[in-house]
Design a protein around this nucleic acid. Structure first.
Lengths: 124, 124
DNA sequence: CCGGATCCTCATGGATACTG
DNA sequence: CAGTATCCATGAGGATCCGG
């Protein structure tokens, strides 16, 4: 009954499903969208566009669709003329937001050490 | 002195530096490398290759170089014939490992809800 | 105002072959 | 064994035009 390589509980096993979700939700523009919606909510499409530096509609639309599909943001259409579309964070998206906070805290605290490592590496 | 949009402490501001570091360190193969080195250490190049499903040398080499440059893994060359190269996690890499654990815990716990959201979205 | 549809390019990743 | 070099396919992302 002695296992040779237990080491890791199951939830730490990196499966394709885990990677796929992280990829869909932690990509470049998604991070910006979440950050923007965290500061102010709700935001309309063009407000988001202005809030995020140099994003194209295509990329922004794609990011919003991905986030919506994965249940991270909510898309509310008001059928006026012209239509108004508002984006909000869902509870699921809020839990992701907390994770991103942790990531940013980590980058902030380790960036100095990382830059030293880079300088040392690039020197050689 | 009342700020209109404080909301976020500075370390939660998503700068290009933060995004760059996360991109270099949380990419597909880096996650696998860290996971592999976490289970067993040290590992040689071809051992890593065998441990990681279907990675090519090119991708593995690139991932290892990036991780080494950012101070996450250590590369030790033993000048025998033929040469032996061993890879280890650094303390900095260990802190990253802890973060990845948190990410995987999050994906594990939210995956059911995410899949419901996907099903609902795809239904329409 | 909020996108969808197209076309294009350009970086990334895979496959293969070769080397110290 | 541990890579480097090369060629090539693929896909993300930008630019532009159009439609509800």
């Amino acid at each position: 009954m002695t296992e040779t390589t237990p080491a890791l509980p199951d939830y730490l096993h990196l499966t394709e499903q885990h990677r796929e979700l992280l990829d869909q939700v932690l990509d470049k523009w998604s991070l910006h969208v979440l950050a923007a919606l965290c500061e102010e909510e709700p935001l309309r499409f063009n407000e988001l566009r202005r809030a995020i530096p140099v994003v194209t509609q295509k990329s922004l639309t794609a990011a919003l669709r991905r986030l919506e599909r994965n249940g991270m943001v909510e898309r509310c259409v008001t059928s006026t003329r012209p239509v108004a579309v508002e984006y909000r964070i869902t509870p699921l998206g809020q839990s992701l937001q907390d994770l991103i906070d942790a990531l940013l805290r980590w980058t902030t605290s380790t960036l100095p050490a990382v830059e030293r490592a880079r300088a040392h590496f690039d020197h050689a």
